[in-house]
Amino acid sequence: MDAFILQILNGLDKGSAYALIALGLTLIFGTLGVVNFAHGALFMIGAFCAVFLQRILSLSFLTVDETRTDFLGNPMKVETPYVVDWFGPELGNAIIDWSVPLAILFAIPVMVFVGFVMERGLIKHFYKRPHADQILVTFGLAIVLQEIIKYFYGANPIPTPAPRALAGAFDIGTVIGFDANTIIYPYWRMIYFAFSLIIIGGVFGFLRYTTFGMVVRAGMADRETVGMLGIDIDRRFTLMFGIAAAVAGLAGVMYTPINPPNYHMGMDFLVLSFVVVVVGGMGSLPGAVLAGFLLGILESFASTSWATSALPGINQIIIYLVAIIVLLTRPRGLMGRKGVMEE
């Protein structure tokens, strides 16, 4: 039983990332009808927002401290970050330590802006063209974005740790009545899960309870009629693209402590997120979230030692197998609506 719960917990953090990316993909597909192969790149750009902010905050200047000497006997050179200099050692070091959570604030405007530029500058021109062209141009864009990041940050993963206060692990087992040290779960993964639930809830609430969201939902159902009612639906859809980009970006920001970001992390997640969207049902927001968590947990179960000893390598292919089975038996996905992209 404790092993069972542990596997579910282990699946949650990856599942959260899948769910967030798939949610953004579905938002874009549902509103604009565009299949966005560059969505993984948005996830990666979000992660590099965190890296960028960390680098900015750690910018420092050198001073020579005459009172201490280094191992060669020369006066020691001390690096002092500017933030420490400005805010004093306590607050300054805390700011550097908390750079990843701070990056959330930084990433939201950046990602909305990136999404806005992408939609207005490129994707707008592809609404009328076939899906194959949309796939191809966004695929090209994904290559360009990831090569730009590679140019600036190199090919190696960049460690971006969580704040020290949150770096430990929590013994969940003792809370829910198991022995100590059976179910241990890192704080940050718990935070990631909670964070993703908040974002998902926020997006759903926004669509459900605001007038803006209502118009967007109406536009998803029937774009032309909404347009005829005198509503500028294109502008709202552009904003939705920005929101979808921000969701992917935030997923990336918060994922950096779990997995050090590198330039191709977006592509790695993208393929799986597509599978998630298809399993959940193209155009269905709850389906994307549900399938994201389900596949994340399934992957975690397939990685257990008894599963891999029964079928070696099952953890590598389980998601694809499930996707193929779902597509063949229930082509519109778990929660897909009838008539959406069913040809």
Binding site: V35, A132, I135, V271, L327, P331, E343
Partner: peptide, 23 residues
Amino acid sequence: SGIYFSILTLAFAQMSFALAYSV
């Protein structure tokens, strides 16, 4: 057909890659 076909072939290719690489 359409986008589903692209994703299915992509899934198959990635599966083949995983099979060849480790399984």
